[in-house]
Design a protein around this nucleic acid. Structure first.
Length: 612
DNA sequence: GTAGGGTTAG
């Protein structure tokens, strides 16, 4: 601030006394203005300069990059009469670090290589590019850059090693991470940034114990980033309680918690629904004036949302987060989880760009509040606005709504609409559509889609498609068609197909064919206990007890282990899994008591025989 | 004498 005041005083004096500052002084002033965000003042000074040099151009280009005005930055870049490596590196880095301009960074990098002798690709260019390819997950370019760095002797500085480790780690090449690290001499024990990069790489790979070991050697080298990396590593790997222990340890060891620490620990509080610690951090963050950080603000909102405290969440969100897309996302998820769909919708509509998390939250929220019509409306909106295909979670919501509305033929109408919008269905789309057909017994439609898949879209049917068709025939009591289809199949039937075929036989009461399928199935998968149980059920359903005993005996003879059948039930946000006679659940006593009451109720309605 | 690069957070 003092420097700014002095700069302004100097500038004012210069104007008053009519003397023109030297190029050097004017360049300094531009930087000063830029640092303070005084864009207009910087531009005015630049415009008034009678003479400029390459530093002047670099300074003014950076002013615009800093405020993300790439139109102005690019215009000045193109008009600059002199450029050096810094001119290029600045704009390349600006583009590389802003979402949506990454291609421009690559284009400039290519252009840079055709420039004059004064503009050379240097270590700054290369490390920036490594960051970019890590971001774009473009590993092949990363490898090319690495080999260029080796050839030009640009691969050994701390910066180079860090960027290479980071690029390989983010690209999932853990072995390459280690070959770079091992080839870097003793940098890992002398350069804390290299050490932090390798710690982050281990955490990404799930090698927490190794990270801890590296962290603990050369303790004196560790800095705040090392601690933050480890705390975050524990959170990323689901060891959230330990991350909080480490967070406490960090302060005990004399390190200051910073905004990164708080952001990470807030996410740990969200996971653990630890409202007490979340509130403590909220107070601390308020005291330290950190609430302006979008990461911290959204982190606090998220804790209150996850803990179901929507009132607090709303008040923090209104104060600091209304333009923060992460905060809005947390609020939408929070409202939709608690079934407040009107509030969720209000925030959803306020988002200009909607990510997959908010779409999914809205879908599941509508399902949870049993607003099925809204599920379908939302899906139409999704199709109109988004170019991507619905992901699995959205499809589950849709199927749920369809099943409840008993209108599965609708999941087909949507498919027709999808085709009209020009989206290309793939093999998975056809599994979904054939599944829809089999659930509502649409044989002709199923056959039509099956042949259309091969003829119009050149998709070769796979196991799932064949199984869908067999099941479709089976459920529609068209066993003859199932048999003909089964015999014509160009692939060797596997256990899924044989199992489906066998079920079709069961549904159509043809035990002879079921036994044929049985023999084939057990030939392939004689050690799978589930298959024997499936077979036994086929015979039991027909009252063929001898046959059933025969199959069970066959299984025992093989000494295979029967997999216990399990049921699961979704209550609130958790799934509870039970097996027969299971008493391991923490609420087992209450559950069995309730079950006893239900059975008593039922006994009044049903004959005792029906219950055994 | 000015500028530009790396690690950690939602």
């Amino acid at each position: 601030m003092r420097a700014l005041k002095e700069g302004l005083k100097f500038h004012a004096n210069a104007i008053k006394s009519g003397f023109t500052p030297t190029i050097f002084a004017a360049n300094q002033l531009i930087h000063l203005y830029s640092k303070q965000g005084f864009v207009r003042e910087a531009c005015k000074l630049f415009d008034e300069m009678p003479e400029r040099n390459v530093y002047t151009w670099n300074a003014i280009i950076n002013v615009h990059i800093k405020c993300q005005n790439f139109t102005a930055a690019q215009f000045l870049f193109d008009s600059a009469p002199c450029k050096d490596s810094v001119t290029y590196n600045s704009l390349i880095s600006g583009y590389a670090n802003s979402d949506g301009h990454e291609n421009m960074a690559l284009k400039l990098f290519v252009q840079m290589q055709y420039e004059s002798e004064s503009v050379k690709v240097d270590e700054f260019t290369l490390t920036t590019l490594l960051n970019l390819v890590a971001k774009l997950r473009a590993l092949c370019y990363g490898r090319q850059l690495h080999s260029y760095m080796v050839k030009t002797n640009n691969d050994s500085s701390g910066f180079a090693v860090t960027s290479l480790i980071d690029m390989y780690s983010k690209s999932g090449c853990y072995n390459d991470v280690w070959s770079v690290f091992n080839g870097s001499g003793d940098r890992g024990v002398t350069d804390v940034v290299v050490k932090n990069a390798i710690l982050a790489a281990c955490c990404r790979e799930g090698e927490l114990e190794l990270a801890q070991e590296i962290f603990s050697t050369q303790l004196e080298l560790n800095d705040n980033v090392s601690w933050n990396t480890m705390i975050s590593g524990y959170v990323q790997n689901g060891r959230v309680e330990e991350s909080i222990q480490l967070f406490r340890c960090m302060a005990e060891e004399g390190f200051n918690w910073d905004n990164h620490t708080f952001a990470t620990v807030l996410s740990a509080c969200s996971t653990l629904k630890n409202l007490k610690l979340g509130k403590k951090i909220h107070v601390r963050v308020l005291k330290e004036g950190m609430l302006a950080s979008p990461f911290i603000a959204s982190g606090i909102v998220d804790v209150y949302c996850k803990c179901g405290n929507m009132g607090y969440a709303e008040s923090v969100h209104k104060t600091v987060g209304t333009r923060n897309s992460f905060s809005i996302t947390s609020m939408i998820v929070g409202y939709s989880t608690s079934g407040s769909m009107r509030e969720a919708r209000r925030l959803f509509d306020s988002l200009a760009e909607k990510n997959i998390v908010v779409w999914t939250a809205m879908f599941s929220g509508y399902v949870k509040s049993q607003q099925y019509k809204n599920v379908f409306h939302l899906f139409r909106e999704f199709q109109n606005k988004e170019k991507t295909v619905a992901d699995a979670l959205i499809v589950v919501s849709l199927l749920c709504a369809c099943a409840t509305q008993a209108s599965i033929d609708l999941a087909i109408k949507l498919f027709e609409e999808m085709k009209q919008t020009g989206l290309q269905p793939d093999a998975v789309t056809f599994v979904a559509i054939l599944s829809a057909c089999r659930h509502c017994g649409l044989v002709e439609e199923g056959e039509m889609y099956f042949s259309s898949m091969m003829e119009d879209y050149a998709i070769t049917p796979e196991t799932d498609h064949y199984a869908c068709m067999l099941d479709l025939y089976g459920r529609s009591n068209q066993l003859k068609k199932a048999v003909a289809f089964f015999e014509k199949m160009p692939i060797e039937p596997d256990t899924i197909i044989l199992g489906t075929f066998m079920n079709a036989c069961k549904m159509n009461r043809n035990l002879e064919l079921a036994r044929m399928a049985e023999n084939k199935l057990l030939e392939i998968e004689g050690n799978n206990g589930e298959r024997y149980v499936q077979l036994a059920n086929v015979y039991a359903s027909e009252g063929k007890w001898d046959e059933m005993r025969r199959v069970m005996k066959r299984m025992r003879g093989k000494a295979v282990k029967k997999v216990t059948g399990r049921s699961w039930v979704n209550v609130g946000n958790s799934v509870h899994v039970f097996k027969s006679g299971d008493r391991s659940h923490s609420e087992a006593e209450a559950i069995y008591f309730t079950l006893g009451c239900l059975i008593q109720e039922l006994c009044g309605v049903l004959a005792f025989d029906d219950l055994i």
